[in-house]
Design a protein around this nucleic acid. Structure first.
Lengths: 134, 134
DNA sequence: TATAATCCTATTGACATAGTAGGTTTTTCT
DNA sequence: AGAAAAACCTACTATGTCAATAGGATTATA
């Protein structure tokens, strides 16, 4: 029941970008040094963020990455879902699928579903801008 | 960000026990068959529950396991913490320890802490008896 | 005393995590 | 034009956890 470094680093990367003036782009090398995270590892993380359209990238010398929306419009939840995958604490195929092998006993499902909602709602209620203000 | 089978199975085991009359003990073999979980794997899970005092065990033939409190007095949270370990979604030693290497940038900590509280509070607000009633 | 249960220690295969390595392409600055 | 600095791409690896299995030792009952 842990968020992996992938999700945590992705978030710190986004916060780092958000701390810089809009429209200016920041290289991974800078972020890597500032945050103390391996450059190569950051590369693999940022790739997913770009592919999902959360970030724009600028090639070549002087290039880097930048947000493509105002920080208020990024929900922490969406960033983590991209970096981390589904945030539901339990993925019970047996339950969500056509039949659960222990239908009667599966009293826990409702609880897991509600917990998943709780987590997603909380994280979707926080924006990048909110994080900066902390 | 997933609860492992250890936690999920532990909970189902507890629910199974709670469905039986108090003071009667149930063997793992029965639970294993009813829940479709490997007997040997259940053994390793139940060991922790007994050691933590959540269950009583009765040795020898005719033995088994039973709850030692009424179902209302078990919080789902405490069961999961025993089976699963800490339920905090992030354990940042750098932050919780004496010094954080990126104190200024560590804007995410407060959020993680609050999420952890949210999860624990939700799961501590549900008892075994509540689960049965679902 | 046979049986049926808990208890204990060790091992294993599969998979994900957390990174590393080395190079290619693209763009800018000199 | 050419060097430099950045993103981009593919592959590899070590470590660790998960999920389970295996085989037996101990305990108590019938």
């Amino acid at each position: 029941m842990k968020i992996s470094t992938k999700g945590r680093y992705a978030l710190r990367l986004m916060v780092d970008l958000a701390e810089h003036p809009e429209a200016s782009c920041v290289s991974l090398k800078e972020i890597s040094e500032r945050q103390g995270i391996s450059l190569k590892y950051l590369e693999s993380i940022v790739a997913g963020l770009v592919k999902s359209g959360l970030l724009d990238s600028i090639h070549g010398k002087g290039g880097g990455y930048k947000l493509n929306r105002p920080a208020e419009n990024y929900k922490v939840g969406e960033i983590l879902r991209v970096a981390e995958g589904d945030l539901a604490p339990v993925s019970c195929e047996a339950c969500s699928g056509e039949k659960c092998s222990h239908i009667g006993e599966c009293k826990t499902k409702t609880m897991w579903d509600k917990l998943g909602e709780l987590i997603n709602d909380y994280l979707d209620g926080i924006s990048l801008a909110d994080l900066l203000a902390m």
